[in-house]
Design a protein around this nucleic acid. Sequence first.
DNA 1: CAGCATCCGTGGCGATACTG
DNA 2: CAGTATCGCCACGGATGCTG
Lengths: 137, 137
Amino acid sequence: MAVSEELDSLLAGFDGGTMCPSRLVLEHVTSRWGVLILIALSERSYRFSELRRRVGGVSEKMLTQTLQTLERDGFVHRDAKPVIPPRVDYSLTALGEEAAGRVRELARWTDARVAAVEEARARYDTARREAATRSSQ
Amino acid sequence: MAVSEELDSLLAGFDGGTMCPSRLVLEHVTSRWGVLILIALSERSYRFSELRRRVGGVSEKMLTQTLQTLERDGFVHRDAKPVIPPRVDYSLTALGEEAAGRVRELARWTDARVAAVEEARARYDTARREAATRSSQ
DNA sequence: CAGCATCCGTGGCGATACTG
DNA sequence: CAGTATCGCCACGGATGCTG
């Protein structure tokens, strides 16, 4: 229904025998650290360790790895200045800004709705608990 | 900068000692199968095996697991009819529709931009290859 | 049909050590 | 400082078999 027959290949997961490319891209963008890195870089450009501090809990390895994936996909621009000590600035490309905009929308919505989600969880948990005690009687 | 100091706790990852709740919710919504399930259910309601066919590549286990997470978070409504053979319909709640809307936006954008991403990858790969041959000379 | 339980492999991810 | 390289765990997720 609706207006979205164009997402068929994404949902199908295959594009004539091989893995659907758009699903791969979507997984990069929605990956655990990809989301947070895109949001951080949509604020401003960051140096490597700045970014590591900004995105709480990310390991050095995952930061490197995710940045490389995002750079390869054309979302992130890596500017390595040939100085000592090394200095590398990361920023979003035009493509990255477009993606980050959507991701931020989702993140902002999530942030706004956390309370509603936690209420739903409480209802779910008590409902399950009551069902459990009832069946054990 | 910009308009988004409200995402600070999300980026920090911690909310006064414990894991930030909004990050958990975001991870559920952006999880590998969560994204695709939300998109599918935004078309219409689906029965379990219907949904399994609609979302290509998802195993029965992951479909069950992801649906339970989304149901607990209040995104998905589970309607189990007491009939034989069993029939269970899944649909989005109002909260789920809101989330799915954002996710769909991202997915549609991704679908539209796959070509640009693949061009970026080609540029990245050839650039790296040239750098490699140059350093091996 | 719609699950749940179990086993089990892969790789995501963190921790550590080393380099330019 | 900004990485690369290596090791190792365990959790995500697939395959199989069983139940109401």
